[in-house]
Design a protein around this nucleic acid. Structure first.
Length: 571
DNA sequence: GCCGTTTTCGGCCCGACTGTTTTCAGTCG
């Protein structure tokens, strides 16, 4: 898949055009093309082969040609020429907050600055303040920006961010002057990585709100504190912003700050055509500035003739067009889940008993859970041997009776390097649920790895393929596999594909899950919990599924127990 | 560069803030 590489090239082109002061519309066109590629659920090479590139919204003649050229040659002549015309690396200066294209170019032309380190030196030496439209304050701000950049280098995985955001929201709810509170931004859209935490509040008296926010226990640094907006950096290295708005603007502000940017742009374009204007304060008639909506998001969408669109799909991936035709999917919700089909106990590498997991699952309102400890060859996590399986099953039965919830006896069976499963058939036959996953020999060549997994899926006892790509967020790349072939195999064999909800994994990811859904594959959402608290990871899996436009009917473990068992038996 | 029941040419989303300026360019979200 070259999708990301080509998107990166288009973004680079956009950065360089910005520095050169080209038409802003051309620049956004390249950025839109980049985002269109990132959002594709299919390999762009396949689309190109069918000659359908220009049917992708945001891709036109020019970008299509450059995609074709990249697929042929691995680059684009236009791109290389642009790069040659600018000092190498100058676009990295733009990653410093406060430094945009104009400043980057100015710094280079007047001071020869090409790197962030050089910029830091120049600021400290007081050279930057001598440039036109620059001063001492600017210099200080650039230094602050560099420090911030180094602290909050990258987006953080949602699993690290959401708990802090929830704590913050809870703290703000506790302020008696606060009326409404909501997270916004990419966190509300449940993206797998988060750049900063956005929180929106309504209150008649912002002062105490800001006081609580800026003195919150995890705040490491206060960047700004005002009456309508404050910014802090949390100890985990992420920025958090809170904004206080009027109640009549809450919906408009929530819509505005939830994004995505592309979604909002399209929404406002629609508004313009109706003689309306949308901003963070509300929806207004252009002619007389009369406000017609803003208190709730529903009002805002209704003002442009649309139903409310769930935040997770606000990515300008066709959701607005579908909403116009009243064709939005009914996205899956946490409450649709009837059980959890992958978790571990002390029988292998989990830290709770079967009974404790059963109790926790029952407390979540589930009808069933599957205990899926590791299989025998995974000795380093204490995999369950064939001999132990029977005793393990008795423990599951006992917990089931005691707690009063259906405990399915299962395994997360290792897929051996040759594609065989780690238990013999007669052991697998006795289990209720068989999840199969790869845990060893991760660096196989693509075709070999794909064939290995397909072979495992072809085993008649395999019910579910666990964490299909094997990635660990921020730690390990996915193994080399051909996902299309895995989906083919899933359809052919009736094997379900897992959306692993563990925030370290989120595997399948949103784009892959959307592909699988569109192709009609059966999906499951499982937490892979290793203790009872991690059963709550389901919310991350639901987030991924919603981003993938998945409905309850696409997901096996939304079924009531009886129907789930029927599905398992048919296999 | 993209796009079209307002257009194949002429548009293209909106506003706040800041620091440097005497009216606004640049950056950000």
């Amino acid at each position: 898949m070259q999708n990301r590489a080509i998107a990166a090239m288009f973004n680079d082109i956009a950065d360089m055009l910005e520095i050169k002061g080209e038409s802003p519309f051309r620049i956004t066109a390249y950025r839109r093309a980049a985002r269109a590629l990132e959002g594709l659920t299919e390999d762009v090479a396949a689309i190109a082969a069918r000659g359908e590139l220009e049917e992708i919204p945001g891709i036109g003649k020019g970008t299509a040609e450059k995609i074709q050229e990249f697929l042929r040659t691995g680059t684009s002549k236009y791109y290389e020429e642009l790069r040659a015309s600018l000092p190498p690396g100058i676009t990295t200066l733009m990653s410093v907050p406060e430094v945009g294209p104009r400043t980057a170019m100015l710094l280079y032309e007047r001071l020869g600055i090409k790197t962030i380190d050089e910029l830091e030196q120049a600021c400290k030496a007081g050279k930057v303040r001598k440039l036109p439209r620059m001063g001492e304050r600017t210099e200080e701000n650039i230094l602050k920006g560099i420090a911030l950049l180094r602290r909050t280098k990258e987006r953080l995985p949602i699993g690290q961010v959401l708990p802090h955001a929830q704590e913050l929201v809870a703290a703000l709810r506790g302020v008696k002057e606060v009326n409404q509170v909501s997270v916004a931004g990419s966190l509300r859209r449940m993206k797998e990585s988060i750049g900063d935490i956005d929180i929106l509040v309504t209150s008649a008296n912002p002062e105490p709100v800001m006081e609580v926010f800026t003195t919150f226990g995890r705040v490491k640094q206060v960047l700004a504190k005002g009456s309508t907006r404050s910014s802090v950096v949390l100890d985990v290295g992420i920025q958090a912003d809170v904004r206080v708005v009027e109640p009549e603007s809450f919906g408009a502000a929530l819509q505005y700050f939830t994004g995505s940017k592309d979604h909002n742009v399209k929404l406002r374009e629609k508004a313009v055509k109706k003689g309306l204007k949308i901003n963070e304060y509300g929806v207004f008639h252009v002619q007389d500035d009369r406000r017609i909506a803003g208190r709730t998001e529903e009002e805002v969408y209704a003002a442009v003739g649309l139903p409310w669109i769930p935040p997770e799909i606000r990515e300008d991936q066709g959701e607005i067009e579908l909403a116009e035709r009243a064709g939005l999917p009914k996205l899956i919700e946490l409450g649709d889940m009837h059980g959890d089909l992958q978790m571990h106990t002390r029988w292998s590498d989990g830290s709770d008993s079967v009974e404790a997991m059963a109790k926790a699952a029952k407390a979540l309102g589930y009808e069933y859970l599957a205990i899926t400890d590791h299989s025998q060859s995974l000795k380093f996590v204490g995999g369950v041997t064939v001999d132990e399986l029977r005793e393990h099953a008795r423990a599951a039965k006992k917990a089931s009776d005691k707690v009063g919830i259906a405990v399915l006896m299962g395994t997360e069976c290792d897929i051996l390097p040759d594609g065989r499963l780690d238990y013999p058939d007669d052991a697998l036959r006795d289990l209720d649920v068989v999840v199969c996953s790869v845990h060893s020999r991760l660096r196989m060549p693509r075709q070999e790895m794909t064939a290995r997994i397909v072979k495992a899926m072809e085993n008649r006892h395999t019910d579910i393929l666990g964490h299909p790509t094997g990635r660990l967020l921020g730690q390990r790349e996915a193994y080399e596999i051909d996902l299309e072939q895995l989906i083919d195999a899933a359809l052919r064999t009736g094997t379900a594909l897992e959306i692993n909800a563990s925030p370290q994994r989120l595997d399948l990811n949103d784009v892959q899950a959307k592909t699988a859904k569109e192709r009609g594959a059966q999906l499951v959402i499982s937490t892979d919990a290793h203790n009872r608290y991690q059963l709550k990871y389901m919310e991350f899996g639901i987030g991924i599924a919603r981003r993938a436009w998945i409905e309850a009917t696409n997901v096996l473990n939304t079924l009531p127990l009886v129907q789930l068992q029927a599905w398992l038996h048919e296999r």
